[in-house]
Design a protein around this nucleic acid. Structure first.
Lengths: 220, 220, 220, 220
DNA sequence: CATGAATGAGTCTTCATTCAT
DNA sequence: CATGAATGAAGACTCATTCAT
């Protein structure tokens, strides 16, 4: 239920504006589940319609094509998942007034993304799977990256590099490392082994420590 | 051409034994390219046949189903990419006679996988994309992980943990971190931005340094 | 035209309930003709669609598989042709109040089945041809035989055996003989030589006489 | 084994003359089994080849087409099953020197055909199933009927009609009745319920009695 | 707005047949 | 003679999309 509303909220905001009708909500819900389970190309609109409890035609009343349905689902995720690496309230706080410690920033970031992933695992799975095959998605994510993620990240990094806290690698390199660590964790946690026994708190801390200090045993 | 032979060698070895006929080779080559480009589900056997320059029926003489074709392509990659994280000559050297430094081992590993990825980017792309949707592949990779990767990795890690070189995290956690860093690098390098200007030597070293020491500016 | 309506009525009644749409009726009509002409296995859905004047896909909207189409056609025939050997109004009359003569019962039966066969020759041909190869059909007909035909027939026969009118053979044997004679006649009349010159009235009477008294010249 | 030789003998005699090679024998054997089981149209040459233990190409070395293979199998059966209703040694005896009793002739006929059917049930099944769909077969059987069965039967019948033993129905009518009774019995015995418990001797006698005297209780 | 019957292009797969070895 | 790799036409079936109701 809560998930349901969250999903809607997520998809709605960015959405084709307008109100989302109940039927449309059912369609989105069903599409997300089915796309996540079998992949976009292997999902059929008839199956989606069946699961959503609507007629096949109804889907096409709201989304001109199957692909448009995918885009409607995936685009908001891209923005919501990527941008807030620094965006919204949290981001701005961080930027205007960077925390004393780079580590603290990472912690915020990671916890934040963790919660998001927890509630939106299927959406993220769809995004990861489909981005490889749809140029529109690639273009959009590149845009988001270049306009949102990179510049903001760079500003912060400059701060901490000058600060002598963070090593002087190119921004893209650092982003790649941080993102790899975070995404690697989230993918393992929510997609590969969601049913394992996880001590999330601990894993989060260890991941932060890894990003900061690597695997080396701290000198005593 | 070289690629061609490499691909064949890779697919052949593990393969359904037998000799691979020329037509079969063309089919594999074409299938790899097309699967990598549009994904398994969106690739049609007729397109593969056309690109391979054979009749569509010929595909099914060699592979009973389209899925069997996929499996024939992907299975060897799983073994070849995953196992040699430590296997074969290199691995054994390492085990019998571990390098003085954990870092040195990482360097070997990374360079080794880098070369492999360089020559097999499309295969790896297919593997990553399709593993999410085919249980057979998941089963196989889990088997490989549990029987090959994990135990060998653990043995090495135990050595370096005792040694006080490596921090005392659970093996799975460390594997996740190392793999995330390596895969994150390879994916960025060969799939996301293969056309960027890359100073591979430097990136490799930085990645190793990141895995060892994280992003913290080394104390001077 | 009349045939058309009769066919529909036959197929419809037993049918998958629902209304039969016009297109569906065309499909059934075409399928019956083609199945009867070339046999189920040699008939193609594309040919059926063409003859029915619908798109091939339309067939599969109404019948999930080609086999389901066959079953939809053949099942009602089994019931309609077999059961009424004694069923419905006619049967009950006969049972409650058996005709003075066994011969009279045979005459009713034969005339009745003759009319049915006359109007449904293609359906009967399909039934005869396909029953050998489809277990579902065999199961269904066995069920019909055991639950409908046999018990009712037995009741009548017992009456006439006691009565000293009918020879004391096992029921199954008598059924086999009667059915062979009837089916043998109908098959010859409508399938083998439908275009011959037939004096139906006479042949019917002769067949009845044959069943009752065999070929022996009646003693004078 | 014996079956095997019998089959070969049957198929060979009429055959394309020549010797039948071992491979060819295996092909025939396999084809008969498979055709009988699934019907001609649903049998594949590859399956036949597999069961026969030969390469697919080998079939086409001996039989230009799949249909020719069918014809090679079915044609001899038609002759052997139909003609000997009166043909060969037995027939001639009968004709030159008709038995005192029509009943005796029927007994010979029935026993004879019974033995044949017992040993060639699959062949007969194939014949019955396929004759409806192949003009060549229909032409051939009509020829056989008109040239062999009918004239010989008529001669005998004339004898017994004159004799006042057999009722004066048209020859075709009588043939139909006799054939229906015989085929009805054989089909039930060997195709419909081959696994039932049969008292063959008794059923044969009852069938003869039925043909002669029908179902009427003999007057005492 | 919603429906669901209808479409027809396209999918994977089968198969009889050929032919170089 | 026998093989079996290769063919390509045809088969059953799927599916995104349209449109009259």
């Amino acid at each position: 239920m809560e998930d349901h509303h969250d999903l809607l909220k997520l998809l709605e905001e960015e959405g084709q504006a307008k109100e989302i009708t109940p039927k449309q909500a059912q369609i989105l819900q069903a599409a997300v589940e089915i796309f996540a389970e079998k992949g976009y190309a292997s999902s059929s609109t008839s199956e989606i319609a069946a699961k959503a409890g609507v007629a096949e035609g109804t889907i096409f009343r709201h989304y001109k094509t199957k692909k448009e349905l995918l885009i409607s689902i995936v685009t908001p995720v891209m923005t919501k998942f990527t941008v807030p690496f620094f965006a919204t309230h949290f981001a701005n706080q961080v930027f205007e007034n960077p925390p004393a410690e780079f580590e603290e920033l990472l912690r915020n970031l990671l916890k934040n993304r963790f919660e998001f992933a927890k509630q939106n695992a299927p959406l993220i799975k769809i995004l990861i799977q489909e981005i490889a095959f749809h140029e529109e998605l690639q273009d959009r994510i590149q845009e988001v990256f270049l306009e949102e993620v990179f510049p903001k990240f760079e500003r912060i990094l400059d701060h901490f590099k000058t600060d002598q806290t963070v090593i002087d690698y190119p921004t893209t390199t650092i982003i790649r490392m941080v993102v790899s660590a975070i995404v690697g964790f989230l993918v393992t946690r929510f997609l590969i082994a969601p049913d394992g026994e996880w001590n999330d708190e601990e894993e989060l801390e260890q991941t932060i420590h890894f990003i900061m200090h690597g695997l080396s045993k701290p000198a005593e």
